[in-house]
Design a protein around this nucleic acid. Structure first.
Lengths: 192, 192, 192, 192
DNA sequence: TATGAATGAGCATTCATTCAT
DNA sequence: CATGAATGAATGCTCATTCAT
């Protein structure tokens, strides 16, 4: 195995353990020293793999893009309304699985990191939803009161808003159910 | 003037200056020492009026309740759909007037403080919206797919979500317009 | 009533309330602000009567002198060994009645205050014990291995040591019993 | 040299310098910042070695146990009365060598720290004295008015009381002489 | 007499980050 | 690759005391 690959493997290995820590204690309560103690590594090693502490938060939610691209995308069918509902439910599932603390972390995270942008509309998360709406309009399943891009933006805001609320409430309600209720109601406004 | 009143006056005077600071630098970047330097007071004086730093955040958004109770409530008429739209627009106006940093501060603030709870459904902010929906259903202006309480909760989450997004984007879009678009669209789902 | 007397009365009144506070919370945990809040007075008033916070500690244990002079002294009889034992038991009783926190306070207090000295051998506490030993030697009830003054000093140290230990142990043993055991044993060394 | 050893060595090195500071200024007057300035280290470094300021106090008097175990124990012979006197004299010597401020520090220190207890009867300091008394009773050198354990407790209280008094008097008398006088007198009560 | 606003030096502690080894 | 000693600015907060009113 070449050294670069080894580096990546080790990094993922460490990150996976750190993820557990985040879910347990919350990102805000994590210190580099604490992480190092728990993982049994030195701070030097930590900084070897994660030049900044905030790198952690970023890796954390780049993950959701992969999930939607690799898993959710394949659950779609011809009915775009169904797809829309599936999308929201899966969004909720992902958030719930990630846990309250991870969600809180993401809600609060700084917007930009290096050349990535949390709200980037090129993220597959965004693009996937956009495509549903575009296809829906094309198929005349959805109306065109607003263009698909605008609806997508709106829905992303609302999904993030719900997730953030759920985390604020310490996860004490059924996020998926609420999201489903919401999207079923909201979709009345956009279906023909 | 009695001493208690004097205390309150002075507190408001200081708080008003602190508010300016928050709008300028953001709550997260505020330190007690920094505040004291800028206001030309000692830390002792600061703690005389604000026993905890977090008190600031709380005063900050107890204010919106007063605004809705004392100002917005009087703008309502018999058309509950109009009232709903007015509510959302006013929410946006208030947030925009408060500024990006204040909004960010509120989004991130700890949920509970003393016996107050940020998400408390007894806040006039919440009750006012609830009443619109209740009346709307009574007047058959709104359908009853979901009970008013549930719709209110949903809308509050969405309004907070939008505000938070706006702050995340550093206020670089017209929040009021977006909220109006949103509520006009969404209301299709709930009007008869 | 003349003003000076009024001053003294008020001071004693306040001090009596403060004493209760000391017994409850411990001297070390008392702050001037806390005292003032609890008593419902202003800090200005506090400083009017007690120019220094440490004044409290001093008033606190000037009290034991009065107790020994006014109460204990009258319990003595002709048998100086008995008197010695009585003295120690009464010392223990006084400490126990004052409570753990008061005792801790006294153990730790600075030695000197204005022109008073905690270890002053002119205090009636000291003189009373000295007289027992002097009379005991005169009556040939006690031997003269050491002069009475030396024994008195020794006993005072030991009594204070025991009280301090008792406070360190949070009063979790019977101080009076221990003191009685001690003095009964120790007295074997000094009786003829 | 392995890293752990290096850590310990450095810690001892720092502690030794801090000890000098304690003897000079008194524990109560020590601040972390002050220590760091005087030692020419950063506060970070200080906390690297002493996670809590109070750790200092504890290292301070865990030392006396080592002294008694490693040095004093070997001075004992068959005569338990002599051993008892030796014990007290050595106790005095140790306290005097440690200095008034160190002694004051120990007198005032909080009782418990982590799993150690200042008054713990398992400390070698306590056990060593207990053994003297047990052997003394076995050899019929001491009477059994009170069981050895009780006498040991009593003597520990008295030794601590004397040390504390000596510190209160700023070390202005000969502690060792006083302790010798005391134990010679007191021992009359317990020898056969 | 009494008030309470104001002071400000001082405190223990945290923590991301660097860098010589 | 990995270590961990060292950094030091920064933080929220305390509290005895003063003094103008």
């Amino acid at each position: 195995m070449n050294p670069e690959k080894k580096y990546i493997i080790r990094k993922q290995e460490l990150f996976s353990q750190i993820t557990d820590l985040i879910r347990k204690d919350g990102y805000a309560n994590l210190t580099v020293r604490g992480i190092c103690n728990d993982l049994g590594i030195s701070t030097g090693t930590f900084y070897h793999y994660f030049p900044e502490k905030n790198d952690l938060a970023w890796i954390l939610f780049s993950d959701i893009d992969d999930y939607f691209k690799d898993v959710v995308a394949f659950k779609f069918d011809d009915n775009e309304l169904n797809n829309l509902i599936t999308y929201c439910i899966e969004y909720g599932n992902y958030v719930v699985d990630s846990g309250v603390e991870t969600c809180r972390c993401i809600s609060v995270a700084p917007l930009k990191h290096m050349n990535h942008n949390y709200l980037d509309e090129n993220r597959s998360l965004f693009q996937l939803l956009l495509k549903i709406l575009v296809r829906g309009v094309e198929k005349k399943q959805f109306n065109d009161t607003f263009i698909p891009l605008e609806i997508t933006r709106m829905l992303m805001v609302l999904l993030r808003g719900y997730s953030s609320d759920w985390a604020k409430c310490n996860g004490n309600y059924d996020l998926v159910e609420k999201l489903e209720n919401f999207i079923r109601l909201f979709s009345k406004s956009i279906v023909n």
